[in-house]
Design a protein around this nucleic acid. Structure first.
Length: 578
RNA sequence: UCGCUUGUAGCUCAGUAGGUUUAGAGCAUCUGACUUUUAAUCAGAGGGUCGUGGGUUCGAGUCCCACCAAGCGAACCA
């Protein structure tokens, strides 16, 4: 049974149809201005004045009716289009110049609801209180809404009351969130602008945007558990990609100088405010470059993004102001650890590192090797404290099976991450292009896998074959678009920068239809009574005790004052349950 | 997967220590008044499987247990 407000609106739908008004017309509706156009182009009007010529004398705007203040024979309302809101003035005698006032009195005042989509025509004027408005001479119902929207209100101090805030509802019904929470729309516009700024930057450099397989027979390029699926025709297992690194490198082997892809990747792991099972990365590979060169590119590109979104390199994130202006601070991993803990670990062996972890209260387990121990110290003691954008360079080789060994520091690789607001925003290296070294690193990974590491990488023979043909020295980069969007839009969770974050399925109660009830012999007029009693499923009804049910139905009939409805007999009730 | 918190009307929330026949408020809805308002205003009315299912009790929105969903934290995610 629908809530009262929805039932009323469905009745209104029928009334509109009876009046010959199609609540879902097919005709296109010609629009010549947006709410924002009116605000920028007509602001010069003085209070009480109207536009005397040009398109704003015959303006046509469409949008959703978001608020309404009716004062008898006239009234104000607000229409919301994709750009914002504009006030409209509805006057009975303007809308209905003739004798018949029903299109105002009946249709506008009674049959049109908040949330309906209207088109209006009229001229722009400024009210005596100084609000730009449209003096409506003609309106058209373009879409009738059956469900009522939440009704947040903003007071004169700009404070929002009764905001639509329940995260579960906001994520499950993002369409509602977008309609009533303007800052949500703004976040997603910024996200798209972020991607577009990067794409423009990379295209300007002459790099080629490409597409590579999402369904992969072997997953690689990162350490993560994959989603697994099956192709029927080939009768084979396929995986949703966890990264596209190995495919992009094949393209560098193939002779492209620079390739990039904005890719949805999929990792079958925990969810949190920083993790969604599907997420977006941009990966970039440029031939004949190294990781030092790539650092400069990252700085320049991300600085451009900040400026494109905020007009400045400074971005407010929670309590922190983060400045993306070049150059960023650079630390080697050892320097960073020494800076934050006062301990120089660069010369330590595994036992000494383990001892240091104990001293620093960093948890370890026996399976951790030297590289993992260093990474653990960094993760626990440094990463969260790096608020301003900082490059961390020269990672332990054990953690980086696809990165080239450092040109003069044994045991390290030519790799960097950029950290901002205490979180990694990118990961990059001089790519390993020695096919024999790469094979050895893969085999080490395979051994880790045999020891039970279910995130160890698999050996990709075709990728090794490609390397054997020769991949030029190459710099590679991956930037987490969701994480960067979070920082750039001051969002504390990844859900805020994904239109449709992953959720557990909604429980859909199997609600019986009127026909279902009729099929077991219930008279139609008794259905509302039975539903009111809470028997929404035929199975539940069948489980009921016949005597009790009979009593309940008769009692509810009386309570609902359904005097026209005849009570069922005991035998009748018994038959339903038979 | 573990811990803490939350779930009451379309939305935002009250609901005291378990106890007042019929579970409250604001917005939204319905009826009426109002031709420059803007959180419009004024008068009246309707609207609730109190997340779901059990239990304790003379009595449960309130206490207990299980389940479902969400948030936060942890684990995991190099």
């Amino acid at each position: 049974m629908r809530p009262e407000q929805e039932r009323v609106r469905i009745e209104k739908l029928e009334e509109l149809r009876k009046l010959g008004i199609n609540p879902y017309p097919a005709d296109l509706y010609e629009i010549n201005a947006s709410s924002a156009d009116i605000k920028t182009d007509c602001d010069h009007l003085a209070a009480g004045d109207k536009v005397e010529e040009g398109k704003y004398k015959q303006v046509s705007v469409a949008g959703r009716l978001m608020s309404r203040r009716i004062q008898g024979k006239a009234g104000f309302a607000e229409l919301q289009d994709s750009q914002g809101r504009v006030q409209i003035y509805m006057n009975r005698d303007e809308i209905c110049p003739g004798e018949d006032k029903s299109y105002y009195n009946n249709v506008y005042k009674k049959l049109v609801d908040l949330g309906d989509i209207l088109g209006v025509k009229g001229y722009v004027f400024k009210t005596q209180t100084g609000e730009l408005s449209i003096w409506v001479t003609e309106y058209t119902l373009l879409t009738k809404a059956i469900k009522p929207l939440p009704q947040p209100k903003t007071d004169e101090d700009g404070k929002v009351h009764d905001a639509f805030t329940d995260p579960e509802l906001r994520y499950r019904q993002r369409y509602v969130d977008l309609v009533v929470n303007p800052q949500v729309r703004d976040t997603f516009i910024k996200r798209t602008k972020l991607v577009n700024t990067m794409r423009d930057y990379l295209n300007d450099k002459g790099y080629l945007e490409v597409e590579t397989p999402i369904l992969q027979p072997l997953y690689g390029g990162a350490a993560a558990r994959p989603f697994k699926t099956h192709h029927n025709t080939l009768d084979m297992t396929l995986y949703l990609r966890i990264a596209n690194e190995l495919y992009l490198k094949r393209l560098i082997v193939g002779g492209f100088d620079g390739v990039y892809e904005f890719s949805k990747d999929f990792r079958n792991e925990g969810m949190s405010r920083f993790h969604n099972p599907e997420f977006t990365q941009v990966e970039l590979y440029v031939a004949y470059k190294d990781y030092e060169w790539m650092m400069n590119l990252v700085e320049e590109m991300v600085e451009k993004v900040a400026i494109a979104l905020h007009g400045t390199t400074e971005v407010q994130v929670g309590a922190n102001t983060i400045n993306f202006q070049r150059p960023w601070k650079r630390y080697t991993m050892f320097e960073a650890i020494e800076h934050f803990t006062g301990i120089d670990i660069s010369e330590m062996n595994e036992d000494q590192l383990r001892e240091t972890c104990k001293k620093l209260d960093v948890e370890t387990d026996p399976s951790m090797g030297k590289g993992k121990l260093i990474d653990e110290i960094f993760g626990e003691k440094c990463e969260g404290s790096l608020i301003q954008p900082t490059f961390i360079t020269n990672y332990p080789v054990e953690m980086s099976p696809l990165a080239k060994s450092h040109r003069d520091k044994p045991g390290l690789v030519e790799r960097f991450e950029a950290i901002a607001n205490g979180k990694e925003i990118c990961n990059a290296f001089s790519e390993l292009n020695d096919p024999l070294d790469q094979r050895q690193r893969f085999e080490d990974q395979v051994n880790l896998g045999k020891r039970g590491d279910d995130e160890a990488m698999t050996l990709d023979e075709d990728f090794l074959r490609a390397l054997e043909y020769g991949m030029p020295p190459t710099a590679g980069l991956g930037i987490g678009i969701d994480r960067l969007s979070m920082i750039m839009t001051n969002s504390s969770t990844i859900q805020e920068v994904l239109f449709f974050p992953q959720m557990r399925p909604e429980k859909q109660p199997v609600i019986a239809t009127v026909d279902d009830y009729k099929s077991i012999g219930v008279r139609e007029e008794l259905v509302p009574i039975i539903q009111k009693l809470g028997y929404f499923e035929i199975e539940k009804l069948k489980e009921a005790n016949a005597n009790k049910l009979h009593q309940e139905v008769c009692g509810m009939r009386k309570k609902l004052k359904l005097n026209d409805v005849k009570n069922p007999s005991k035998e009748e009730v018994a038959e339903w349950l038979a």
